[in-house]
C-alpha cells in the first residue's frame, strides 16, 4: 500500500515537472506544446551520448538539461513566434514540431532503446517496508528542487512577475511595456530546462527511444487539464494526484493499462464539469 503510494508519488513528480513546462508555455502563449515530448527525447539522448563519451554523469545531465532548454527556445523562435496571432494554428504547428523532433532523434540514434546508467543505479533506500530505488529518490529531489526554484523565480523576481502579468492579460502586459518576445522566450527556456530535468529523471528508469515521452506527455496534459491550463500549482497538485491514481491503477487493476487511467480521469473531469473546461482558471500562472 505504502509502496504503491510512493511509486505513485514518483510518477506524480515526473508528471508535474512535464506539466509545469506545458502550462507555462500555455499560460503565456496559449500553445498546447505537443513538441515538448520531442524536447524530452532529445535531452535524454544528449545526456546518453555525453555520458557514453566518458563524461561524468553530472556533466552529462547538465548537458541534457541545457539541450532541452536550447531546443525549446529554438521551437519558439523558428515556429511558435509566427503564429501568436493565429491560435487556431497552434495544435497543427505543435504536432508538426513533434514529428520533426522525434524523427531527428530517430535519424540520429536509430529506433533501438538505450538505457542510461547513473551513479545512483545501485543505491536502494529502505525505510519501513518501503523500498525506493536511488533513481526514483533522485527524481523526487530533483523535481521538488526545480519546482521550488521556479516558484521563487515567478514570485520573487521582476522577471517572474512580468511573466505572470503576461499570462494574466497579454494585451495589458504589452501596453505596460513588458517586452513580450523576451517573455515568450523565457517561458520556453524554462519549459525546456524542465523537460531536460524530466528526461534525465525518466531515462534511467525506463528506456530512451524516440517515442519514450508520448505517454508521459498525454498524462501531463491530463494534469494540465486537471489543474487548469496556465496554473503552476494546479499542475503540481494535479501531477501528484494523477500519479497516485495511475500508481494504484497499475498495482491493483492492470499495469499494462497504466496510462489509460489518465483517460479515465480526463473523462471524469469532462463529465463532472458540464461547462467543459472553459470555466477553469484558464490564464493564470503561479
Amino acid at each position: 500500500m505504502t509502496q504503491v503510494l510512493v511509486d505513485g508519488i514518483f510518477l506524480g513528480c515526473l508528471f508535474a515537472v512535464v506539466a509545469v513546462g506545458l502550462t507555462l508555455v500555455y499560460g503565456v502563449m496559449e500553445v498546447p506544446n505537443f513538441a515538448h515530448a520531442g524536447i524530452i527525447v532529445l535531452a535524454a539522448y544528449t545526456t546518453w551520448s555525453v555520458s557514453q563519451a566518458g563524461a561524468p554523469f553530472v556533466l552529462a545531465a547538465l548537458a541534457g538539461i541545457a539541450c532541452g532548454g536550447a531546443v525549446s527556445v529554438l521551437t519558439e523562435v523558428l515556429a511558435y513566434r509566427w503564429i501568436i496571432e493565429r491560435p487556431a494554428a497552434a495544435p497543427a504547428v505543435a504536432l508538426g514540431l513533434l514529428l520533426i523532433l522525434q524523427n531527428v532523434a530517430l535519424r540520429l540514434y536509430g529506433g533501438a532503446g538505450r538505457s542510461l546508467d547513473t551513479p545512483y543505479d545501485t543505491v536502494l533506500l529502505r525505510f519501513g517496508g518501503v523500498t525506493l530505488p536511488g533513481v526514483k529518490a533522485a527524481l523526487i529531489v530533483l523535481a521538488v528542487a526545480s519546482l521550488g526554484a521556479l516558484h521563487l523565480l515567478l514570485t520573487r523576481t521582476s522577471l517572474g512577475r512580468a511573466m505572470r502579468a503576461v499570462a494574466q492579460d497579454r494585451e495589458a502586459a504589452g501596453m505596460l511595456g513588458i517586452p513580450m518576445r523576451r517573455q515568450y522566450m523565457l517561458a520556453f527556456l524554462i519549459a525546456g530546462l524542465l523537460g531536460g530535468v524530466a528526461a534525465i529523471a525518466y531515462a534511467p528508469t525506463f528506456q530512451i527511444s524516440p517515442y519514450m515521452a508520448d505517454e508521459v506527455l498525454l498524462s501531463a496534459f491530463v494534469v494540465v487539464v486537471l489543474g487548469g491550463l496556465g496554473s503552476v500549482w494546479g499542475a503540481v497538485t494535479g501531477g501528484l494526484l494523477l500519479g497516485i491514481v495511475q500508481g494504484f491503477g497499475a498495482a491493483y487493476v492492470s499495469s499494462a493499462y497504466q496510462s489509460a487511467f489518465g483517460l479515465l480521469v480526463l473523462v471524469l473531469i469532462l463529465v463532472l464539469r458540464p461547462d467543459g473546461l472553459r470555466s477553469t482558471n484558464a490564464r493564470r500562472v503561479a
Binding site: 515556429a79 503564429i83 494554428a89 497543427a92 504547428v93 504536432l95 508538426g96 514540431l97 513533434l98 514529428l99 520533426i100 522525434q102 524523427n103 531527428v104 532523434a105 530517430l106 535519424r107 536509430g110 529506433g111 524516440p210
Partner: peptide, 16 residues
C-alpha cells in the same frame, strides 16, 4: 529512417 517524416513536418508547418 525519419527523414521523410522530418520533411513532412517542415512542410506541414510551412503550409500552416
Amino acid at each position: 529512417p525519419g527523414v521523410s517524416q522530418i520533411v513532412l513536418g517542415v512542410l506541414f508547418i510551412l503550409v500552416t
